[in-house]
């Protein structure tokens, strides 16, 4: 068996992490993306920039700040302790928090583009038909933005699977809790278990290719993401 129990554990953990992160990001990211797409406030620029930061920042910066902020002396750490949750560094919860931050732009930006592309007209038409804003959102915007949601989900999931630096810095490499596939591969390479590293790395390569294939094949001739 090329993949042993610890490899399978890492894969299962990664799937859980990526699924939960994507779900949370769709819930949190949709209102942010909607606001960014519609607002005329001067805050649009700064908020958009903050959302895009993880695209530019090295994971070490995000990991370092999270390690400090989530630690027992950091403000987030103080908050989680006050809530009786203890500190979340070295835990699955900590990884979810890190991943939500890290993958945020990959979900928000496709959604924002999809919302922008709908334009003003369908909303005005809905309004003249006396649809409430909520009605409009659920029955007009969501169906029209469907491709955006699909892209956002795929990218959010795939990007979380590909996460490494942040997990390395706040995870502590605990089997079945924080040792995701990327860290497991790193571990194999470090301990010179190259054949095990190959199997897992190969699986990752195939997975990533299939995901991108799904994304691009589904888009037929359009350039870029929306």
């Amino acid at each position: 068996m090329p993949l042993d129990a610890s490899d399978l554990g890492a894969i299962w953990l990664t799937v859980q992490l990526a699924s939960l992160t994507t779900l949370i990001l769709l819930v949190v990211g949709t209102p942010i993306a909607w606001w960014l797409a519609r607002t005329r406030s001067w805050l649009r620029g700064p908020v958009g920039a903050v959302v895009a930061l993880p695209l530019v920042l090295p994971p070490t910066v995000i990991g370092f700040y999270l390690l400090i902020a989530l630690g027992p002396h950091g403000w987030l750490g103080q908050a989680t302790q006050a809530l009786g949750l203890g500190t979340v560094v070295f835990s699955f919860t900590g990884l979810v928090i890190g991943s939500v931050v890290y993958s945020m732009p990959f979900v928000v930006q496709p959604l924002q583009n999809a919302f922008s592309a709908i334009g003003q007209r369908p909303l005005e038409v809905a309004a003249t038909l006396r649809a409430s804003p909520w009605d409009t959102f659920v029955h007009v915007v969501l169906p029209l933005a469907r491709p955006g949601f699909i892209t956002a989900s795929i990218l959010g999931f795939a990007h979380t699977v590909g996460e490494f630096g942040v997990v390395l810095m706040i995870g502590g490499n605990i089997p079945d809790k924080t040792r995701v596939v990327s860290v497991q591969i790193f571990d194999h390479v470090e301990s010179m278990a190259y054949s095990q590293a190959h199997w897992l790395a190969g699986a990752m390569l195939v997975f990533s290719f299939l995901v991108l294939l799904l994304l691009y094949a589904g888009r037929r001739g359009k350039a870029g993401w929306s």
Binding site: L67, I68, L70, G71, P72, H73, T87, V89, F90, L168, M169, G172, N173, I174, F186, E190
Partner: peptide, 20 residues
């Protein structure tokens, strides 16, 4: 209860930040 740093510097860092 064991958390692993990738090298001894990271093991130190986990303790110095109070996380361990």
């Amino acid at each position: 209860k064991i958390v692993e740093g990738q090298n001894i510097t990271q093991a130190f860092q986990f303790v110095s930040t109070g996380n361990a």
